[in-house]
Computed example of a mutant assay.
Amino acid sequence: MTVVLAVLVALIFTALGVTKVLALPLARELATHSGFSVTAYRGIGALELAAATGVLLGLTQPLFGALAGVGLLLLLAGALITHLRNKDTLRQIAPALVCALLVIGYLAVLKGIL
């Protein structure tokens, strides 16, 4: 179960991070909507890529996985705050909520809670 969740989390955040780092059109649009510069959004993408790497490293070094998961939760808390600040709809907020629940599940399995 840990491997499946780790790979899923890593794939999702690799895709999100690459989109932001490359400043693809959707990322540029979301950065503007969120009130971030493209440079700042690229920085968020780099953090997502680093966390995805940490989650995969967590398969052999659980401490790295746990730290990466906590880092992702902090990024997602920031995303949720930004969505609420912008008065986004539930449809716009839902991906961040789902990702947060997925990361919480990953951390719970990693720690043996689930």
Results as ranks from 00 to 15, higher is better:
A31R: 02
A94Y: 11
V9Y: 14
G45N: 12
L84F: 12
A27Y: 08
V21H: 06
T60P: 11
A77E: 03
V103Y: 02
A94S: 08
V109C: 09
F36D: 10
A66M: 15
L24R: 01
R42M: 15
A27K: 03
V103E: 04
A6E: 12
F64H: 09
L76Y: 07
A6V: 05
R28C: 02
A27C: 08
A108H: 07
P25K: 02
L72I: 05
I93P: 09
C99F: 13
V38C: 11
T19W: 07
I104D: 14
T82G: 04
L72Q: 11
R85E: 15
L8T: 12
V70Q: 09
S37M: 08
L24E: 06
V38P: 15
R42H: 14
L101Q: 08
Y41E: 03
G17A: 09
F36G: 00
A66R: 15
I81K: 07
P25I: 00
L73D: 04
G65N: 10
P62L: 15
G54I: 09
I12D: 00
V3Y: 09
A31K: 03
T60L: 08
R85N: 14
V7P: 15
G58P: 01
V70H: 08
L114S: 11
L57P: 01
R85Q: 15
T32G: 07
G65D: 15
V70K: 00
L49P: 02
L56Y: 06
G58K: 04
K20V: 12
A68F: 07
G105T: 03
G43C: 12
A100F: 06
T2V: 13
P25C: 02
F13R: 04
P95R: 03
A50Y: 00
A50Q: 02
V109T: 13
T14M: 01
T82E: 06
V7F: 11
G17L: 04
G35P: 07
L76T: 07
T60H: 06
M1Y: 05
V109F: 05
L74P: 02
V38H: 03
F64P: 15
L73C: 07
E29H: 10
A15L: 10
L47R: 00
I113T: 10
F36V: 10
A40P: 04
N86V: 01
L67V: 12
C99K: 00
G65C: 10
A31G: 07
A50F: 05
G78N: 05
V3Q: 11
V3K: 13
T2L: 15
V103A: 03
R91W: 10
L22N: 02
I81M: 09
L26M: 11
V3L: 14
A96Q: 04
V98M: 13
L59Y: 04
L5H: 06
D88C: 01
G105K: 06
A68M: 11
T32H: 11
